[in-house]
């Protein structure tokens, strides 16, 4: 590791120093290609974020790919219903590693205002791992841009070797996530127990 003072002195002389990790992560985080995946109202704010006023293109994420095989960021924008949940997990499985998920809007985080619905999945993190959650109903396009920047910082901190390295470099990490099936009354299983546990109730009255 190069000392920061030395690094700055060198950069003033026109010599750029970096580590392989930084360079690798820098390339990945500044060219995230989102999957064009809008479910509901948040999709309109996502489209507004890609339009001229808010301009997601300056973050490198302009290219919304329709096909999951070519995307590496899935922005789950909108309410996830139980009818749609197996398709979302299937799409997530089809994305190649490294892949990231942003849960945009309260509906994707926990079911949102529709939490009491019989057809509403109470949060997409019941079946797929989520990296950044954006609250809001709908979150403003600026909030989506902040989430993108948070994700970029997270990618920038990812390690390539050693304990806790990024999932796509870890041979033991799961490659595919199980797809729920339609049951007679609910999805089966109602959640992926390896991924999501109901949170503790802190009030006990």
């Amino acid at each position: 590791m190069i000392e920061e003072g030395l690094r700055q002195e060198l950069s003033r002389q026109g010599v750029v120093t970096t580590t392989l990790e930084e360079l690798y992560n820098w390339g990945r985080k500044n060219s995230l290609w989102p999957l064009q995946f809008g479910l509901a109202c948040c999709a309109i704010e996502m489209i507004a974020a890609s339009m001229a006023r808010f301009d997601i293109a300056r973050f490198g994420a302009e290219v919304f790919r329709p096909s999951p095989r070519q995307a590496d960021l899935m922005i789950v924008a909108g309410t996830v219903t139980k009818k749609m949940a197996p398709q979302i997990v299937r799409l997530y499985n089809q994305m190649p590693e490294p892949k990231y998920v942003i849960a945009m809007g309260v509906c994707a985080i926990s079911g949102g205002p529709f939490k009491e619905g019989y057809n509403v999945l109470k949060g997409i993190d019941r079946y797929i791992p989520v990296d950044v959650h954006i609250p809001g109903c709908p979150p403003r396009p600026e909030a989506l841009l902040q989430a993108l920047m948070t994700l970029q910082e997270k990618i920038g901190r990812q390690r390539l070797t050693g304990e806790g390295r990024a999932r796509h470099l870890d041979a033991d990490a799961p490659g595919e996530w199980p797809i729920p099936e339609f049951g007679k009354h609910d999805l089966e299983p109602p959640r992926n127990p390896a991924l999501w546990q109901p949170p503790a109730m802190t009030r006990s009255e």
């Binding site: 139980k82 079911g111 009491e116 019989y118 057809n119 339609f182 049951g183 009354h185 109602p190 959640r191």
Partner: peptide, 24 residues
């Protein structure tokens, strides 16, 4: 038309019991 074909209930009826899945 709105629910999946394997679904067995009629949800808008007044006596429909929703699946118990919002734990928090």
């Amino acid at each position: 038309i709105l629910m999946w074909p394997e679904f067995a209930d009629h949800p808008m009826r007044k006596d429909y019991a929703e699946p118990d899945d919002y734990e928090y």
